[in-house]
Design a protein around this nucleic acid. Structure first.
Length: 258
DNA sequence: ATGGTAGACGCTCTA
């Protein structure tokens, strides 16, 4: 099945572009979205149902919010993770589809520097997420954790490593947190399939970096051994990101076939 | 050079 992770930067302003993309470009089975920026009642559930998707939403006013749309039925929707950090904002949603556990996460951005309380929250969020996945691994073999992780891991994941020195999204401490999460037993599907391929998932609106491919790889599909074994193809789809109208998200979807 | 754009919301915050 084709699984996509896509930070949509407001679903209400993006729904038209996304449905066009879903119809014309990619038969996506499971679409995981972050930053839907609306409450559950405001989510265009019926639009996705018309496209033959089952819908699961963990919405939040103004900021954050995540959702999963699936062509295949899921038996449960998890939006509470019994953790004060993970549950503070609406940043996670989990569904079980066939023998796969799909977790969709929007990791905190972290604001401007390491001393910012939002950055501290990002560090704590990584610790809590790592503990959660570590525990979940005892009960499920095939786990796919996708989303916006707001960290680029290595120099090939940013267009100019020198420029990103000391910038949130490329700091040593947050890279270490993401590596620790991977060390629980998750594969960075894209990077393991393509060890040296440049493929960004985000380009800054402000510098119009998309036109010079000045971006970062901050969206990931992470999978346990058993799920990664079945990962046939994976790549970034820049079709929506290159539209001039309607305005695209600043992220592009990462699509993996598992 | 420390900007720039975009979105939700409401006289600003977040990314």
């Amino acid at each position: 099945m084709k699984i996509a992770t896509f930070n949509v930067n407001s679903i209400r302003s993006r729904v038209e572009l996304i449905t066009t993309w879903l119809r014309d470009k990619n038969p996506i089975d499971i679409l995981c979205m972050q930053e839907i920026k609306c409450e559950n009642e405001q989510f265009p559930t019926q639009t996705f149902e018309k496209e033959k998707y089952f819908v699961a939403v963990n919405g939040q006013k103004r900021y954050n919010g995540v959702a999963i749309c699936s062509k295949l039925p899921f038996d449960s929707i998890k939006i509470k993770f019994d953790d004060p950090i993970l549950d503070l904002q609406k940043r996670m949603i989990e569904v079980h589809v066939e023998d796969l556990v799909i977790i969709n996460v929007y990791v905190p951005h972290g604001s401007s520097d390491e001393t910012d309380e939002k950055y501290i929250f990002k560090m704590k969020f990584y610790d809590a997420l790592t503990s959660y996945v570590n525990e979940l691994k005892n009960r499920y073999k095939k786990i796919v954790l996708v989303g916006d992780f707001n960290v680029a891991l290595t120099d090939i994941d940013v267009y100019n490593p020198r420029l990103f020195q000391g910038k949130v999204g490329f700091l040593k401490s947050e890279k270490r947190k993401l590596k620790t999460l991977l060390d629980v037993g998750l594969h960075d599907c894209f990077r393991e399939k393509y060890p040296s391929l440049k493929a960004y998932t985000w380009w800054d609106y402000r510098t119009a970096g998309i036109w010079r491919d000045e971006g970062m790889r901050i969206d990931y599909m992470l999978a346990t051994d058993e799920a990664f074994k079945e990962c046939k193809e994976i790549g970034v789809d820049i079709w929506t990101r290159k539209r001039k109208s309607p305005t695209p998200s600043d992220h592009a979807p990462l699509i993996g076939e598992i």
